[in-house]
Each structure stands twice: as C-alpha cells, then as structure tokens.
C-alpha cells in the first residue's frame, strides 16, 4: 500500500533526533576531549558510587511508598459509582498538569525553617523540625510529584477487570481476601508494573527535587549529569558516561522486573 510512504519523513526525523543523539552519548562516553578512545570516564565514576547508591535507594523508596499509598486508592476508587469515579480521576490528574516545579516548590514553602509547618508547630508549642535537606524530604517530593502516575495505570487496569470473573471466584467459594489475592491482584499486576516504571524513572533521574528539597546535600544522579553539561563541572564526556550507565541499569532492572511479572507487562519497556 502506498500509505507506507507516509512513515518515511518521520523515520528520517527519528534517525536524526532520537537515534543519532543516543549514539553521540555512547561516542562521548568512550572518548576524551581530544577525541581519543578511553575508558577513564567509566573508571572515574567510582568516586560517585555513593551518588548511584543514594539515587537508586531513594527512587526505590519513593516507588514503594507510591505503591503502598496508590494501590489501595486505585482499588477503592475503582469500586465507586461511575460519576464519583470520573470526578476522582479528574482530581488525581489536575495536580499532574500543574507545573511540577511549582508542586515541588509548594513543599519548600511548607517545610522551610521559618515556613508554614514550623510556625504551626511553634504556636502549638512543639520544637521546629529541619526537614528540608534530609533524604526524607527528597522522597516526600518524589512521592508527591509522581503518586498520580502510580494510581492512574493501576486504576485503569482494575476498572477493566470483568466483574463476572470475580463473581465466578465467589461462586466457587472464595472469600473477599481470597478474591483479592488470587484474582484481582494478579490481574492488576500489569498496571503496577506500568506505574513502577512511571514513578521510578523520573525519580532516579531528577535533579530538581533533590536541589530544592535536598538542600544541595543529597546529590542524585540527575544533579551529577546536570553539573557535567550545564554546571560548574563542565565535562560532557563524563556526563555521557554517567547517563549511559544509568540508562543501562534502568533498562536492565525494568527488564528483569517485567520478566518476573510473568512477562505480562513486557510492552511497558519498549
């Protein structure tokens, strides 16, 4: 069919602006400023092992909290009447559409040393809390920003579960805990996997949240990369190497996770 040719311009565009940039990242990661081949960019990364560890740990914690808070919410919302459900979905999406810098900033505003919370605590007679600058504040920022991305896919999968499947389980004598454990939960796993990718990837690579809420003391991979490209430590070769390693770790861990998820969520990755 001649309609195939409609794909040609965009295939060219993708080659130029999607594939070529990624090839450049690989090339930069393996070269020096003078253009010679090197592995130094990777061996120099050892000094940043702590940052790698912290990034993956905090992103993992944020993802876990999002599942623990978001799964019950999605499950409860899916049980509501359709009018309420539509409203609730809009309310979940509304903050998602508001600028994410402003959402993060709202917590700076609330948690500052002389901010809203501390003033509240003071008037009640409690001591002030220095939350900003702690890893907990960074995780809080991640959860606040990305929770809707966990709720939405889980909700849309649970909503589509055929009620007859649940009735069948009940007819066969399952109590509600068994129905959940043996029917609803396994069927909702693809939604959870999709939510995990949508929360984990932006969390592990953020630099805005760590800079605003981490007070510059909790460097994450995103900060490291940003510093190599636009910051004081200008070195795009090292920056490319860090980006490449982060990309590979994320791809491998997502791939493994999907393998364990009975292969159902395979399409989440690519």
């Amino acid at each position: 069919m001649k309609h195939k040719s409609l794909a040609i311009p965009y295939v060219g565009w993708m080659a130029l602006f999607v594939v070529a940039p990624l090839i450049l990242v690989v090339v930069y990661a393996f070269t020096t400023r003078e253009g010679g081949f090197t592995l130094d960019n990777f061996s120099n990364m050892v000094q940043y092992a702590g940052v790698f560890g912290r990034s993956f740990l905090l992103a993992f914690l944020a993802t876990l909290v999002c599942i623990l808070l978001g799964y019950p919410l999605a499950l409860l919302l899916a049980r509501e009447q359709s009018r309420l459900r539509g409203m609730a979905m809009l309310l979940i999406m509304l903050p998602m559409w508001m600028n994410f810098l402003l959402r993060t900033y709202s917590w700076v505003f609330l948690l500052e040393r002389n901010g809203f919370f501390n003033t509240l605590l003071e008037t009640v007679g409690l001591p002030k809390l220095d939350i900003i600058g702690t890893p907990a504040a960074v995780v809080l920022g991640m959860v606040y920003n990305f929770l809707p991305f966990m709720v939405l896919p889980i909700f849309s999968v649970i909503e589509k579960i055929d009620p007859r499947v649940i009735e069948a389980a009940q007819d066969l004598g399952a109590n509600s805990a068994q129905v959940f454990r043996r029917v609803i939960f396994p069927l909702s796993l693809p939604g959870v996997l999709s939510g995990v990718t949508m929360v984990f990837i932006p969390s592990v690579s953020t630099f805005v949240i760590s800079r605003l809420l981490g007070g510059g003391m909790n460097l994450l991979l995103g900060d490291l990369i940003e510093m190599q490209f636009l910051g004081s430590a200008y070195n795009p070769h090292l920056g490319s190497a860090i980006s490449l390693v982060m990309m590979v770790i994320v791809l491998v861990s997502m791939g493994l996770m999907n393998r364990f998820g009975e292969g159902e969520g395979e399409a989440v990755l690519l």
């Binding site: 990242v25 990718t197 690579s205 990369i225 490209f229 982060m246 994320v250």
Partner: peptide, 13 residues
C-alpha cells in the same frame, strides 16, 4: 521510556 534528562542531554549533545 527514556528519562527526560537523557533525552534532553542527548539532544543537547
């Protein structure tokens, strides 16, 4: 699927 920072950085390169 890529982290936005990677998309941004690679295009900048």
């Amino acid at each position: 699927t890529n982290a936005d920072i990677i998309t941004g950085v690679s295009m900048m390169l």
